[in-house]
Nucleic acid binder design. Structure first.
Length: 285
DNA sequence: CGCGCCTCCTGTGTGC
DNA sequence: TGCACACAGGAGGCGC
Protein backbone atom coordinates (compact mmCIF):
# COMPACT_ATOMS: atom_id res chain seq x y z
CA UNK A 1 0.00 0.00 0.00
CA UNK A 2 1.80 3.07 -1.15
CA UNK A 3 2.39 5.67 1.53
CA UNK A 4 5.05 8.38 1.54
CA UNK A 5 8.14 6.11 1.41
CA UNK A 6 6.73 4.07 -1.46
CA UNK A 7 5.63 7.16 -3.39
CA UNK A 8 9.02 8.79 -2.79
CA UNK A 9 10.75 5.66 -4.14
CA UNK A 10 8.55 5.87 -7.24
CA UNK A 11 9.30 9.60 -7.54
CA UNK A 12 13.02 8.96 -7.51
CA UNK A 13 12.63 6.29 -10.16
CA UNK A 14 10.56 8.56 -12.36
CA UNK A 15 13.06 11.39 -11.94
CA UNK A 16 15.71 9.06 -13.30
CA UNK A 17 13.69 7.54 -16.13
CA UNK A 18 11.22 10.12 -17.46
CA UNK A 19 12.48 13.60 -16.60
CA UNK A 20 13.52 15.39 -19.79
CA UNK A 21 11.68 12.99 -22.12
CA UNK A 22 8.99 14.00 -24.60
CA UNK A 23 5.68 12.13 -24.73
CA UNK A 24 4.91 10.66 -28.14
CA UNK A 25 1.60 8.88 -27.50
CA UNK A 26 -0.88 8.41 -24.67
CA UNK A 27 -3.37 5.53 -24.37
CA UNK A 28 -6.16 5.44 -21.79
CA UNK A 29 -7.28 1.86 -21.27
CA UNK A 30 -9.74 2.42 -18.41
CA UNK A 31 -11.87 5.57 -17.85
CA UNK A 32 -11.74 5.23 -14.07
CA UNK A 33 -7.98 5.84 -14.12
CA UNK A 34 -8.60 9.43 -15.28
CA UNK A 35 -11.90 10.04 -13.45
CA UNK A 36 -10.38 13.12 -11.77
CA UNK A 37 -9.65 14.53 -15.22
CA UNK A 38 -13.17 15.87 -15.77
CA UNK A 39 -12.79 16.91 -19.47
CA UNK A 40 -12.31 13.25 -20.38
CA UNK A 41 -9.80 11.06 -22.16
CA UNK A 42 -9.57 12.89 -25.51
CA UNK A 43 -8.67 16.09 -23.68
CA UNK A 44 -6.26 14.22 -21.40
CA UNK A 45 -4.45 12.81 -24.43
CA UNK A 46 -4.39 16.13 -26.29
CA UNK A 47 -2.93 17.98 -23.31
CA UNK A 48 -0.03 15.53 -23.00
CA UNK A 49 0.93 14.50 -26.52
CA UNK A 50 4.17 16.21 -27.59
CA UNK A 51 4.84 17.65 -24.14
CA UNK A 52 8.15 17.25 -22.34
CA UNK A 53 8.26 16.15 -18.69
CA UNK A 54 10.57 18.58 -16.89
CA UNK A 55 10.64 17.06 -13.38
CA UNK A 56 8.95 14.88 -10.80
CA UNK A 57 7.60 16.30 -7.52
CA UNK A 58 5.81 14.84 -4.51
CA UNK A 59 3.72 16.02 -1.60
CA UNK A 60 2.59 13.32 0.81
CA UNK A 61 1.24 10.49 -1.32
CA UNK A 62 0.66 12.66 -4.40
CA UNK A 63 3.03 12.90 -7.33
CA UNK A 64 3.08 15.50 -10.05
CA UNK A 65 5.10 15.82 -13.23
CA UNK A 66 5.50 19.42 -14.41
CA UNK A 67 5.49 19.80 -18.20
CA UNK A 68 7.13 22.28 -20.56
CA UNK A 69 3.62 23.64 -21.27
CA UNK A 70 3.21 24.80 -17.67
CA UNK A 71 0.63 22.07 -17.05
CA UNK A 72 1.38 19.06 -14.87
CA UNK A 73 0.39 15.42 -14.66
CA UNK A 74 -1.00 14.87 -11.15
CA UNK A 75 -1.13 11.31 -9.90
CA UNK A 76 -2.13 9.23 -6.89
CA UNK A 77 -1.39 5.51 -6.59
CA UNK A 78 -4.36 4.82 -4.33
CA UNK A 79 -4.22 1.29 -2.92
CA UNK A 80 -2.63 -0.62 -5.73
CA UNK A 81 -1.38 1.81 -8.37
CA UNK A 82 2.01 1.23 -9.98
CA UNK A 83 4.02 3.40 -12.35
CA UNK A 84 6.30 1.10 -14.29
CA UNK A 85 9.01 1.61 -16.88
CA UNK A 86 8.67 -1.12 -19.49
CA UNK A 87 10.23 -1.86 -22.85
CA UNK A 88 7.74 -1.59 -25.72
CA UNK A 89 7.88 -5.32 -26.34
CA UNK A 90 6.86 -6.21 -22.76
CA UNK A 91 3.44 -7.84 -22.63
CA UNK A 92 0.59 -5.64 -21.37
CA UNK A 93 -0.09 -6.03 -17.66
CA UNK A 94 -3.52 -7.41 -16.76
CA UNK A 95 -4.45 -4.13 -15.07
CA UNK A 96 -2.74 -1.73 -17.46
CA UNK A 97 -4.76 1.52 -17.31
CA UNK A 98 -2.62 4.16 -19.07
CA UNK A 99 0.41 3.93 -21.37
CA UNK A 100 2.83 6.70 -22.33
CA UNK A 101 5.36 6.26 -25.11
CA UNK A 102 8.23 8.67 -25.71
CA UNK A 103 9.73 10.23 -28.83
CA UNK A 104 13.14 8.71 -28.05
CA UNK A 105 11.68 5.21 -28.47
CA UNK A 106 12.95 4.24 -25.01
CA UNK A 107 11.05 2.53 -22.19
CA UNK A 108 7.32 3.24 -21.88
CA UNK A 109 5.70 4.58 -18.72
CA UNK A 110 2.73 2.44 -17.69
CA UNK A 111 0.12 3.12 -15.01
CA UNK A 112 -1.08 -0.24 -13.74
CA UNK A 113 -3.76 -0.41 -11.02
CA UNK A 114 -5.67 -3.47 -9.87
CA UNK A 115 -8.21 -1.82 -7.54
CA UNK A 116 -8.51 1.44 -9.50
CA UNK A 117 -8.42 3.69 -6.44
CA UNK A 118 -5.54 5.58 -8.04
CA UNK A 119 -5.49 7.77 -11.10
CA UNK A 120 -3.89 10.50 -13.17
CA UNK A 121 -5.15 13.92 -14.26
CA UNK A 122 -3.74 16.97 -16.04
CA UNK A 123 -3.60 20.09 -13.91
CA UNK A 124 -3.85 23.25 -15.97
CA UNK A 125 -3.59 25.94 -13.34
CA UNK A 126 0.15 26.41 -13.88
CA UNK A 127 0.81 26.98 -10.20
CA UNK A 128 3.91 25.64 -8.50
CA UNK A 129 1.64 23.35 -6.49
CA UNK A 130 -1.25 21.99 -8.57
CA UNK A 131 -4.60 23.24 -7.29
CA UNK A 132 -5.87 19.67 -7.12
CA UNK A 133 -3.61 19.03 -4.15
CA UNK A 134 -3.56 22.45 -2.54
CA UNK A 135 -5.63 21.08 0.37
CA UNK A 136 -2.95 18.48 1.19
CA UNK A 137 -0.67 19.48 4.06
CA UNK A 138 3.09 19.46 3.68
CA UNK A 139 4.61 16.13 4.63
CA UNK A 140 7.13 15.76 7.46
CA UNK A 141 10.03 15.17 5.03
CA UNK A 142 9.36 18.59 3.45
CA UNK A 143 12.00 21.14 4.59
CA UNK A 144 9.22 23.71 4.97
CA UNK A 145 7.09 21.51 7.25
CA UNK A 146 6.46 23.58 10.39
CA UNK A 147 6.82 21.33 13.43
CA UNK A 148 5.37 23.77 15.94
CA UNK A 149 2.33 24.55 13.78
CA UNK A 150 1.72 20.82 13.49
CA UNK A 151 2.05 20.31 17.24
CA UNK A 152 -0.39 23.14 17.92
CA UNK A 153 -2.92 21.96 15.35
CA UNK A 154 -2.68 18.35 16.54
CA UNK A 155 -3.29 19.35 20.16
CA UNK A 156 -6.12 21.61 19.10
CA UNK A 157 -8.06 18.80 17.49
CA UNK A 158 -10.81 16.89 19.25
CA UNK A 159 -10.14 13.47 17.88
CA UNK A 160 -8.00 10.38 18.37
CA UNK A 161 -4.30 10.47 17.55
CA UNK A 162 -4.36 7.80 14.84
CA UNK A 163 -7.18 9.58 13.04
CA UNK A 164 -5.11 12.76 13.17
CA UNK A 165 -2.03 11.03 11.69
CA UNK A 166 -4.17 9.81 8.80
CA UNK A 167 -5.65 13.28 8.19
CA UNK A 168 -3.82 14.42 5.05
CA UNK A 169 -4.85 18.04 5.65
CA UNK A 170 -2.94 18.00 8.96
CA UNK A 171 0.16 15.98 7.99
CA UNK A 172 0.44 14.17 4.69
CA UNK A 173 2.09 10.96 3.61
CA UNK A 174 1.15 8.78 6.58
CA UNK A 175 -1.16 5.81 5.97
CA UNK A 176 -2.25 2.85 8.04
CA UNK A 177 1.12 1.06 8.13
CA UNK A 178 3.34 3.99 9.12
CA UNK A 179 0.73 5.37 11.53
CA UNK A 180 0.86 2.08 13.45
CA UNK A 181 4.66 2.01 13.27
CA UNK A 182 5.02 5.57 14.55
CA UNK A 183 2.50 4.99 17.36
CA UNK A 184 4.41 1.86 18.40
CA UNK A 185 7.64 3.86 18.56
CA UNK A 186 5.93 6.63 20.50
CA UNK A 187 4.29 4.07 22.81
CA UNK A 188 0.88 5.63 22.22
CA UNK A 189 -2.40 3.87 21.56
CA UNK A 190 -4.13 5.20 18.44
CA UNK A 191 -7.27 6.02 20.38
CA UNK A 192 -5.48 8.50 22.65
CA UNK A 193 -7.25 11.87 22.48
CA UNK A 194 -5.13 14.44 20.68
CA UNK A 195 -6.18 17.23 23.07
CA UNK A 196 -4.64 15.29 25.96
CA UNK A 197 -1.18 14.99 24.39
CA UNK A 198 1.44 17.17 26.02
CA UNK A 199 3.58 19.33 23.78
CA UNK A 200 6.66 17.12 24.35
CA UNK A 201 4.62 13.98 23.60
CA UNK A 202 3.37 15.49 20.35
CA UNK A 203 6.92 16.49 19.39
CA UNK A 204 8.19 12.97 20.14
CA UNK A 205 5.41 11.47 18.06
CA UNK A 206 6.34 13.72 15.13
CA UNK A 207 9.99 12.71 15.50
CA UNK A 208 8.95 9.05 15.42
CA UNK A 209 6.82 9.61 12.31
CA UNK A 210 9.78 11.26 10.62
CA UNK A 211 12.20 8.54 11.71
CA UNK A 212 10.06 5.67 10.46
CA UNK A 213 9.36 7.39 7.14
CA UNK A 214 13.05 8.15 6.65
CA UNK A 215 14.11 4.58 7.43
CA UNK A 216 11.45 3.20 5.10
CA UNK A 217 12.62 5.46 2.26
CA UNK A 218 16.13 4.06 2.71
CA UNK A 219 14.69 0.54 2.43
CA UNK A 220 12.82 1.39 -0.75
CA UNK A 221 9.42 1.20 0.99
CA UNK A 222 7.26 -1.63 2.29
CA UNK A 223 5.97 -4.31 -0.10
CA UNK A 224 3.60 -5.93 2.39
CA UNK A 225 1.11 -7.41 -0.05
CA UNK A 226 3.17 -7.23 -3.24
CA UNK A 227 0.90 -4.55 -4.70
CA UNK A 228 3.70 -2.04 -4.29
CA UNK A 229 6.82 -2.15 -6.44
CA UNK A 230 9.16 0.56 -7.68
CA UNK A 231 9.28 1.73 -11.33
CA UNK A 232 11.50 -1.25 -12.18
CA UNK A 233 9.10 -3.75 -10.62
CA UNK A 234 11.25 -4.36 -7.54
CA UNK A 235 9.90 -4.75 -3.99
CA UNK A 236 10.99 -2.63 -1.03
CA UNK A 237 12.28 -4.42 2.04
CA UNK A 238 11.04 -2.31 4.97
CA UNK A 239 8.51 -5.06 5.79
CA UNK A 240 11.43 -6.76 7.59
CA UNK A 241 11.68 -3.77 9.91
CA UNK A 242 8.02 -3.52 10.91
CA UNK A 243 7.39 -3.57 14.65
CA UNK A 244 3.59 -3.54 14.76
CA UNK A 245 1.80 -3.67 11.40
CA UNK A 246 0.85 -7.19 10.35
CA UNK A 247 2.44 -8.76 13.47
CA UNK A 248 -0.69 -9.96 15.32
CA UNK A 249 0.28 -12.55 17.93
CA UNK A 250 4.01 -12.09 17.40
CA UNK A 251 6.16 -10.81 20.29
CA UNK A 252 6.63 -7.07 20.69
CA UNK A 253 10.22 -6.23 19.79
CA UNK A 254 10.43 -4.10 22.96
CA UNK A 255 8.73 -6.15 25.68
CA UNK A 256 7.81 -9.53 24.20
CA UNK A 257 4.05 -9.19 24.70
CA UNK A 258 2.07 -10.55 21.71
CA UNK A 259 1.03 -7.76 19.34
CA UNK A 260 -2.74 -7.23 19.25
CA UNK A 261 -4.98 -6.39 16.34
CA UNK A 262 -8.06 -4.19 16.68
CA UNK A 263 -10.62 -2.74 14.31
CA UNK A 264 -10.32 1.02 14.18
CA UNK A 265 -11.89 3.31 11.62
CA UNK A 266 -12.94 0.11 9.79
CA UNK A 267 -9.28 -0.74 9.35
CA UNK A 268 -6.93 -3.06 11.18
CA UNK A 269 -4.67 -1.52 13.77
CA UNK A 270 -1.74 -3.28 15.33
CA UNK A 271 -0.22 -2.31 18.66
CA UNK A 272 1.48 -3.69 21.76
CA UNK A 273 -1.04 -4.15 24.61
CA UNK A 274 1.65 -3.44 27.20
CA UNK A 275 3.66 -0.61 25.59
CA UNK A 276 0.55 1.05 24.12
CA UNK A 277 -2.26 0.68 26.66
CA UNK A 278 -5.72 1.82 25.61
CA UNK A 279 -6.68 5.19 27.02
CA UNK A 280 -9.13 5.22 29.87
CA UNK A 281 -12.67 5.53 28.52
CA UNK A 282 -13.98 9.09 28.83
CA UNK A 283 -15.68 9.82 32.13
CA UNK A 284 -19.44 9.95 31.90
CA UNK A 285 -21.67 11.77 34.37
C1' DC B 1 -17.23 24.03 10.27
C1' DG B 2 -15.30 19.92 12.63
C1' DC B 3 -15.73 15.29 12.90
C1' DG B 4 -16.52 10.59 11.50
C1' DC B 5 -18.89 7.23 8.66
C1' DC B 6 -19.69 5.37 4.00
C1' DT B 7 -18.33 4.19 -0.56
C1' DC B 8 -15.58 3.18 -4.45
C1' DC B 9 -12.86 -1.44 -6.41
C1' DT B 10 -10.95 -6.32 -7.26
C1' DG B 11 -8.01 -10.28 -5.99
C1' DT B 12 -7.11 -13.33 -2.27
C1' DG B 13 -8.18 -16.22 1.48
C1' DT B 14 -11.44 -18.66 4.42
C1' DG B 15 -15.39 -21.20 5.93
C1' DC B 16 -19.50 -23.78 5.15
C1' DT C 1 -16.13 -28.52 -5.38
C1' DG C 2 -18.31 -24.33 -5.40
C1' DC C 3 -20.22 -20.47 -3.56
C1' DA C 4 -20.57 -16.53 -0.32
C1' DC C 5 -18.37 -13.37 2.13
C1' DA C 6 -14.69 -10.88 4.74
C1' DC C 7 -10.76 -8.29 4.04
C1' DA C 8 -7.19 -5.00 2.28
C1' DG C 9 -7.54 0.86 2.66
C1' DG C 10 -6.74 6.25 0.47
C1' DA C 11 -9.57 9.89 0.05
C1' DG C 12 -13.69 12.36 -1.46
C1' DG C 13 -18.36 13.12 -0.23
C1' DC C 14 -21.85 13.79 2.85
C1' DG C 15 -24.64 13.76 7.12
C1' DC C 16 -24.89 15.18 11.80
Amino acid sequence: MPELPEVETVRQGLATWVAGRTIATVEVHHPRAIRRHLPGDAHFIAMLTGRTIVGVSRRGKYLWLPLDSGDAIVGHLGMSGQLLMQPAEAEDEKHLRIRFTFTDGGPQLRFVDQRTFGGLAVSEDGAELPGEIAHIARDPMDPLFDDEVFVARLRGKHTEVKRALLDQTLISGVGNIYADEALWRAQLHGARPTDQLTRPAARRLLADVRDVLGEAIKAGGTSFDELYVNVNGESGYFDRSLNAYGREGEPCHRCGTPIRREQFMNRSSFSCPRCQPRPRPPRTH
